[in-house]
Amino acid sequence: MKTLHSDVLIGLAMLIFSIIFLTLSAQMPSDPALFPKLILTILIIFSFLITWSGVSKTWAAEKKEVKQTPVFKHIRVPLVTFIALCLYIALINILGFFAASSIVAIFFMIYFGVRSYVQVILVLLIMNTFIYLLFVWQLRIALPTGLLL
């Protein structure tokens, strides 16, 4: 199966995005819609150019018989990182900032390969103490609290 260059998909995604937002702009009164319409029209032209550039790169790679490496080949670890970030944000609302931060920090350290428990405990202590002293004690910011702290 032919592998499309990532620019083809990016260009098409940009095109769909621009058309959706252009439709939304069309429902606005003319004055506030003017600038968005101008930007989205140029963005549509650029998305065609990016798609065309992707198609050209696909053809060029086919000619040279070069196998293209997918851009998101190694997405597993970044994806896990992002999901952990989302869960962390959700946990802040439930458990409170410091408890959720400690849990996510432990997860990241173990997931990324820290094997020394002393290091994990030291990082947790230093990180939480620093944030508490600077933001809560010094700047008097009320960080979100929850079931724990």
């Binding site: 970030l85 962390y88 996510v104 920090a105 997860f107 990324f112 820290v114 990082v123 933001f135 009320a142």
Partner: peptide, 25 residues
Amino acid sequence: VPFAILAPIIVVLSVVGSYTINNSM
């Protein structure tokens, strides 16, 4: 300094930094 130690610190400080602008989740 290993990335494994830097990563959680960056993530937690990013969350604090974003929250403290308007005290808003």
